[in-house]
Design a protein around this nucleic acid. Structure first.
Length: 425
DNA sequence: TGCGGAGAGGCTCGTGGTTG
DNA sequence: CAACCACGAGCCTCTCCGCA
């Protein structure tokens, strides 16, 4: 039932991968655009049909190789479609937007074997992250890792140095900064996932098991690779990509580690290895190039359009991705209604109320939360010492009662501080 | 002056041990 | 046995600074 992976000798290790992965690789070899749509006419027919447009593709275009149509820049493609619609006497009022819709759909279909499913997955992923953006004072005062607390000194600095002493905007900036950090993470993962969905590609499975750096055909087939391109023909070998968002994402030490991993992949599977940074327009100033190349001398280092071109086999990759993301962001924004301005106002109010209650300034209470606590949780010498609590030198009444800590009840991803303290030995 | 190594800081996810 | 938590690996950003 399952299809074999093509263009590889019978003894190649890829044939020994677990069944589901082999299937995905085989599917990626068969969903290349020119295999699914042998001519430009074929993809036009498909898109016209999807959009219920009763137009025939002109003969001269219909016979052309599909690549000549689908790899046109968006403007040219929609102009071409506009001409077709006009000649087919489609009502003038609708041709303009319709031609853009067609061009968009053609480019989506060019990129993804299953555009609708991919768009849905992208939106779901974005929504997940938007739902976890900071909403309460507790969210910004302590991250999901208890070790990450809001820095009152930075808050003080931004209040005075950036916002003329106004505390409110400095809280907004803190919320926005935290949100942006999360968005950065989202975009990085999104790129890997979305590029992995494109024709000819698969997203390498995340490492599993004990040693996540060691290659294991069963558990961990591609450590160090984010995206795998099985051979597209007998002339194009297996290609393994490590994808970074920007050239500066990784530093020298990371470069060495990633280079070592890529080299091990090449030693195991053969083929070509790539180190791609999507955002960036020059190799100059690349912080991890040297590290990667030292460890993997044959690695191809790519940035910007050059990287997109190898990953998407098209020059339209960057714009396409931008349009796909934009529509997803708009849709998710509509659903979530998240607003930094509103959230900041709520948080500011919480800070104000607490400070009033304790009769101190905003920053003083932030400072106490960021540094206050019991010896038993702050001093490694007292860590397992239940006496440490009573023996603590921290005698402050407020500290003892924890009255000044924010608690949060949106249970799923944040912990109630008070509850947590109580459960401590 | 540019490169790139190092370090600080933030977030996520999977794993494996502990606890209720 | 499920829920919870700590930890490590990995991804991202930015600044600093020695060296060629």
């Amino acid at each position: 039932m399952s299809q074999p992976i093509l263009h590889l000798p019978p003894e190649h290790p890829l044939h020994k991968l677990p069944e589901p992965l082999r299937e995905r690789l085989a599917a990626a070899q068969r969903n290349l655009i020119h295999l699914e749509f042998p001519t430009a006419g074929a993809i036009c027919a498909k898109v016209f049909d999807e959009l219920r447009i009763q137009v025939a593709t002109p003969i001269d275009l219909a016979e052309k190789p599909v690549g000549e149509l689908v790899d046109l820049p968006f403007q040219k493609l929609s102009k071409l479609m506009l001409g077709i619609l006009q000649r087919a006497r489609v009502p003038e009022a609708s041709v303009d937007s319709l031609s853009k819709t067609i061009a968009q759909r053609i480019q989506l279909l060019r990129a993804f074997p299953n555009p609708d499913k991919t768009l849905e997955a992208i939106e779901a992923k974005i929504l997940d992250v938007v739902n976890s953006l900071p909403k309460t004072a507790a969210d910004i005062e302590r991250g999901k890792n208890p070790g990450d607390v809001l820095d009152p000194y930075i808050l003080a600095a931004s209040q005075h140095l950036l916002f003329a002493g106004d505390f409110g905007p400095s809280v907004s900036a803190t919320v926005a900064h935290k949100a942006l950090m999360m968005i950065e993470g989202l975009i990085g993962h999104l790129h890997e996932d979305v590029l992995g969905e494109m024709r000819g590609n698969i997203r390498a499975p995340e490492p599993r098991g004990e040693n996540q750096e060691q290659i294991s055909l069963e558990m961990n087939p591609f450590p160090g690779a984010d995206l795998v391109q099985p051979p597209w023909s007998s002339k194009i070998p297996l290609r393994l990509h490590q994808i970074k968002n920007k050239t500066g994402s990784a530093k020298g030490g990371d470069g060495k580690r990633l280079g070592d991993q890529l080299q091990r992949l090449k030693d195991t599977y053969g083929g070509e290895i790539f180190y791609d940074a999507l955002i960036g327009n020059t190799l100059r100033g690349h912080r991890s190039r040297a590290g990667v190349q030292a460890a993997a001398p044959t690695v191809v280092v790519l940035v910007g359009e050059a990287a997109f071109e190898e990953l998407t086999a098209s020059r339209q990759g960057p714009q396409l991705l931008l349009r796909v993301y934009q529509s997803a962001f708009q849709e998710v924004a509509r659903k979530s209604g998240y607003s930094v301005e509103q959230i900041s106002a709520t948080i500011l109010e919480a800070f104000r109320a607490r400070a009033d209650q304790l009769g101190e300034g905003f920053l003083e209470s932030v400072l106490r939360v960021a540094t206050g606590g019991l010896k038993s949780v702050q001093d490694s010498r007292y860590e397992h010492d239940t006496e440490g609590m009573s023996g603590s030198t921290v005698k402050d009444e407020a500290v003892e009662s924890k009255a000044w800590l924010f608690t949060t009840d949106n249970s799923s991803n944040s912990v109630s501080y008070r509850k947590k303290r109580k459960s401590q030995p």
